[in-house]
Amino acid sequence: MKKRRLSKRTLRNWLYAYMFLAPWIIGVLVLVVYPLINSFNFSLNTVRMMPKGMLLMPVGFKNYHDLFVVDTTFLQALIGFAVRTVPEVAIITTFSLVISIMLNQKIKARGFFRSIFFLPVIIATGPVMNELVSQGAATVPIVNAQAIAEAVSFLPVWVSDPIVDMFSSLILILWNSGVQILIFLAALQKVSPALYEAAKIDGGSGWECFWKITMPSIRPMILLNAIYTVIWLATGGQNEIIDLIYDNMFASSRGYGYASAQAWTYSVAILLMLGLFWRLLRVPPDKSDKIERKKRERLRKRARK
């Protein structure tokens, strides 16, 4: 085999690549990797602030134990968050798909509608949303919150409360779908019109076209949007869990250790949720690909004999 030597040019390319990346890589090490390790370490300790600095007292998994067994507010908030988020993601994704399909038709004033649906991305922030919710401006006037509360009253409180909450702030949930609509719309516009024409010639109806052409082509975007929505809901807006972590950070009785344990639990919960959506929505690997590969392998084996 010919020995490949790295030319001077390749080496210089590597050097410049790393030079361009240098600030970011330092950032990753100092502000991501180190804090990750550190916060896990904190979560296994009780952290006390001393005049001289921090004092770490190792307590093993006590913080996590407290979190699940002793202090129930956090666990309740976490369950509430999960119970709320999963249906919200489904609602947002479906809603934005429907809107984007409507916008993808030959309609007038598409730009105008797009601008309206995107507006909340710009203005919807935690404090603004809180003001709107407290004024009751977040409810669709037609939806009767009382009736919904009665309809779900047979469920335990920790399930029914989030559901009632959800309906009472329905507009704000829909407000989260600006980016998703645009993502779907961009994907829809990339589907080749030739496919629809061919289907029409073969006599396919609009309904069939939707399921046989549109859906498969935008399938990956559904997953992407679901993931985007989970991250969006988990990190921004009105999120009581972040507030809880934040309060505990500076509470004298709890401190950084306990707050770190909460942050880790919260993050694992989010990752689990992402995993759930990934499992549900991922595009399964093509079966014909697999068969093809097996056939090729068999041929190769035969050739070797």
């Binding site: 100092v30 180190y34 916060s39 991250i231």
Partner: peptide, 20 residues
């Protein structure tokens, strides 16, 4: 790593970065 950073919630790194 770039993708990983998008996915992990910033709350994990919030406390140590605050200390830094």
């Amino acid at each position: 790593i770039l993708i990983f950073i998008i996915v992990i919630p910033p709350q994990i790194t919030m406390i140590p970065t605050y200390i830094i």
